[in-house]
Design a protein around this nucleic acid. Structure first.
Lengths: 251, 251
DNA sequence: CTGATGACCAGATTTCGTATCTGGTCATGT
DNA sequence: ACATGACCAGATACGAAATCTGGTCATCAG
């Protein structure tokens, strides 16, 4: 087993971050379809092969960009939860997520979805895997809310998950699909979403719930963990050193 | 002016309906992209030119199919409203519409939207015009509800329109975009939509409102009128007899 | 004379072979 | 040990020729 020197590891990370910065910039300016590996390498000032030292394919590289974006978004949410525990409530979480996602072009494109910017990226198998992850963390969220009685007691978990997901989907898609949505400010749209989520899914007395802080802390823990996973995966595993020739038995 | 014998007019209509039947069948089986004007004419057993006696273009013909489908859907809703005035309430209307739309492959494709079946049809200018019509009739519906105090009093018309539209959009899109939606029956999805619409937009005492029957009747009138417009437009205006050469002054 | 028809045409679409581009590898250099 | 860019196969873009199809209208039937 190799215990690398701290410096080396950090250097790798810095480079990976820099490449992601470049890729994000190009992605934003030209769209997934038009940005080539060579473009990214040249703009980042590294050799093309170097990219493959971090990510196994073009797809993984750009997925890394998206993952890092998600991580930043999670950071924002965690920050909110820390300063204001009541933000765990579905209607607060919902509108905060909506606003945060809409503020960032890349996440907005991801949710809307902007086919011109991200193209087929989200529809690849790896892209679906990311979506699945998001679903998974959401499930944790819903389950926790339910456990602590913050949602309407008459709802089953399935009903909650489907209902909230469908509702959110509608508001996210509205930007692109409802022409009338353009006449309404983002804030008003977020407020509308909050209203729907609160009245349809939130327990009436949720705001006065005694365990609000506990739930918030628990969610902060979960989200932080998930954010870290996203961060790490964003930087790429590179080509796993596969002991092919030498049967290195751990030395 | 020509007052045609009743028979002739009916004959025209019968033919138009028959052509629409054929077109609908082909549309369902092969999709908009693949069905040609010749296919429809041949299958319907009429000359190609005959189609242009009813519709000005291929696009209008297939839009006719959709319009007739919408008319049938409206018929269903009107029937519900007649037998049960309480169905005017947003949550009832919402789930009834959802169920009716999902039951019919063509309307489902229209709402979902199934890009393979309808292709670019809905995105043409004429297609957008149909959408605009739908928006318009919806506006009438919302305005009426508001006028009679059947929706939450704190909501403005804009908030109501946007909120309900976005919510609906989410549930309609869920079929295609949320993988988890497939594990839930159509009825349960409709029930979920109803729950959201009721709790978010409906006045708490709406069910006991004294004017429910009046509102239902008014809506029946509006919807019937709209349905008739759809029916007529579905059969096509054909080439308007444009007195070009002869200045026919009624003779 | 009215109304239906299908041969006809221009423009759109598809096909298919060629040329270019690009993701990914790896021998080489540092 | 690690970074690099020349290199290659397969994907993609391109373009011209061939085919198809929406729409028209001269012609014909009743």
């Amino acid at each position: 087993m190799v215990e690398a020197v701290g410096d080396v590891r950090t250097e790798r990370e810095r480079r990976a971050e820099h490449i992601l910065d470049t890729a994000a910039d190009l992605l934003l300016r030209h769209g997934y379809r038009r940005v080539t590996i060579d473009d990214v390498a040249r703009s980042a000032g590294v050799g093309k092969g170097t990219l493959y030292l971090h990510w196994r394919s073009r797809e993984e590289l750009f997925l890394g960009v998206l993952l890092r974006e998600m991580a930043e978004l999670l950071d924002e949410l965690v920050e909110c939860l820390r300063t204001e525990p009541a933000d765990v409530l579905p209607h607060r979480m919902g509108s905060l997520s909506y606003l945060a996602a809409m503020r960032r072009p890349l996440t907005r494109a991801m949710f809307v979805p902007d086919v011109d910017m991200l193209g087929k990226l989200v529809h690849t198998d790896a892209g679906q895997a990311v979506q699945a992850r998001k679903t998974q963390i959401n499930l944790v969220y819903y389950r926790t809310l339910m456990e602590y009685g913050l949602v309407r007691p008459e709802l089953t978990l399935d009903q909650l998950v489907f209902g909230v997901s469908a509702t959110n989907l509608g508001f996210y898609s509205a930007t692109a699909l409802l022409p009338s949505a353009l006449d309404i400010s983002v804030e008003d749209r977020a407020a509308s979403l909050a209203h729907v989520l609160r009245s349809a899914f939130e327990a009436p007395d949720a705001l006065d719930h005694p365990d609000l802080t506990t739930v918030a802390e628990q969610l902060v823990r979960e989200y932080t963990r998930f954010r870290d996973v996203c961060r790490v995966e964003a930087l790429g595993r590179g080509r796993e050193v596969q002991a092919s020739t030498t049967k290195s038995t751990g030395e």
